[in-house]
Structure formats: C-alpha cells, structure tokens
Amino acid sequence: MTNRPLSPHLLDGARLHWKWGPHMLVSILHRATGDGLALVGLAVLLWWLGALASGPEAYAQFAELAVTIPGRVVLIGLSWALFTHLMSGLRHFVLDIGAGYELATNRFWSIAAPLIAILLTAGFWALILNK
C-alpha cells in the first residue's frame, strides 16, 4: 500500500481520525446501516419467507420469537436501519445530481435525514402495533 488516503476508519488506534460532525455521522450511519441490513436484515427476510413457505408451524415459531423483547429489538432496529439508510440514500441521490453542497443546506440535511428516519420508524411501528 502506498501513502494514498485510506477509506474512513472509525477508529485509528484509540483515537478518532475524523472529527465528529453531522456530515461524517450521516456518512458512517449510511455504511453501518447498509451493511447491517445486508448481513442481518436479509437473513431475517429469508427466515420470514422460508417460514411462510414451510407452513403454519414454522411461521408460528418465527412469530413467537418476533414478539419477544430481543425479537422486537432486532426488528425495530432493522426497520430503523432501513429508514435511516433510505433517508441518507435519498440524500445521496440529491448530492449525485450535484445539488445540496451549500454548507448550510448540506449540514441541514445531514441532521434532518437521520431524524426523519427515527420519526418514520416510530410511525411505522405505531401502525403495526395498533392493528
């Protein structure tokens, strides 16, 4: 490896090598939630689809686990990751077309995207749990 810049590592030894701020937070959240969804979210999706295809007993097993406290934490966590990744992904689309780089605008959406995601998560679960 040469001395070209490295990809953002959260930890460089014991010290952060990026200064915390909304922009780097939304960036690392995008990566963390995306990789979390890829590794855990898709596994849960397959488990759910596999349980459906296997029949009522397998599905009941999935459903029982889903309403335990750890089950709820995982599912709510995954939906939060999905909404967070979705919102920061939409932010990326805007940046991709070359818009939203003004300092104040960029900072505003870096803060707003993860906050909107939390509201969407809360709204989604309010609808699911009030069935």
């Binding site: 459906l52 029949g55 009522p56 009941a60 992904g89 939409l90 609808l127 699911i128």
Partner: peptide
C-alpha cells in the same frame, strides 16, 4: 437503490394494510 425504494415502500405499506400478520393472512 431505486428498485429497493419502490419495493420496500410496497412491502411496508402492505404489512401495514394487512388486517393481521398471522400465517393465514400473510401466506
């Protein structure tokens, strides 16, 4: 990403719209 966006909105809306999430209904 665009595919995910459209299809995930569909899945989320469907899960909310289904009367319950039991085996009979979902399957």
């Amino acid at each position: 990403a665009v595919g995910n966006l459209v299809l995930m909105i569909w899945l989320g809306a469907s899960l909310v719209a289904l009367p319950d999430l039991g085996f009979e209904t979902v399957s």
